[in-house]
Nucleic acid binder design. Structure first.
Lengths: 142, 142
DNA sequence: CATCAAGCTTGAAATAGTCAAGCTTGAAAT
DNA sequence: ATTTCAAGCTTGACTATTTCAAGCTTGATG
């Protein structure tokens, strides 16, 4: 690799491929752990992101999906008794999502499973921090 | 939670969310540029990864998807005259995928479009290199 | 040969995603 | 006050994507 100035297009392609690849691995990993718990991959992601009460919009943003998609997913979680839609305390348009106690319990179990053999486990804590830093920069500025 | 040294579970969740978020942005970005060219997001990804002749399996690996999925996508690209399935020179089981000249032309156009306003453009070249490095480490070891 | 694994395809089914349209409510301007 | 516009959520129709199991051909191995 003496001079190979790597055209931007090549770099772009490779980076996209890598990000995509890692995301796929994570999704597969989530899926593997989720299915035994009776969850689809998307449901598990939603559960993972439910760090506390939030609106549909907020959840959709965290999942990087459309609100209509969030509706679809929350519907299922609600049918399973894992989540509740309550009236939002200050905004009557909005719903406030809250995990039921079963939902919370399942979430805890899920999080434990997710840590095990995570695709990110190959990185040291420091590297993970660096990665997080870079990703935040990339995501924020786009 | 006085000193909260960030439990691994929290770090894991945040990193996953970030990777996923960036991947979604990339997919959306690819999609935006692809549709005007008459391609779906998956087709565009396939085209992006077709850096040269390769087998179905190889393409599937690059796209981080199942071979059956690759079949589905290549079918469409083939119908559009962008790609060809040839006999593999040494392995009669395998197909060798080759872009047609139209495919190549379209790929060039696509790559140009993809660079513009890429979600990764917020990072400096150095940062991109660092990110690539970390991602490779993560992907390889998982 | 015989067996087993790899490469690819198929078809069925489930999942996930987009998009446009509609309802309710909030906010802001007039 | 009233109007107007935007935000939050849902719905429905449609499309794309993915999984899975099963099957065929061929390669590699004993």
């Amino acid at each position: 690799m003496t001079m190979s100035p790597e055209t931007p297009a090549v770099a772009e392609r490779e980076l996209c491929g890598l990000v995509n690849g890692l995301a796929q691995r994570i999704a597969a990993h989530v899926r593997e752990r989720a299915v035994p718990l009776g969850l689809t991959s998307a449901q598990a992601t939603a559960l993972r992101e439910m760090t506390g009460p939030m609106t549909m919009r907020e959840l959709a943003d965290r999942m990087s999906c459309e609100p209509s998609n969030a509706t679809f997913i929350v519907d299922k979680l609600e049918k399973q008794g894992l989540i509740e839609r309550r009236a939002h305390p200050t905004d009557r348009r909005a719903k406030q999502l809250v995990l039921t106690s079963e939902g919370n319990t399942l979430r805890e179990r899920l999080l434990e499973l997710l840590i095990q053999d995570s695709p990110l486990a190959g990185l040291t804590t420091q590297q993970q921090r660096a990665l997080q830093d870079l990703l935040e920069k990339a995501v924020i500025r786009s």
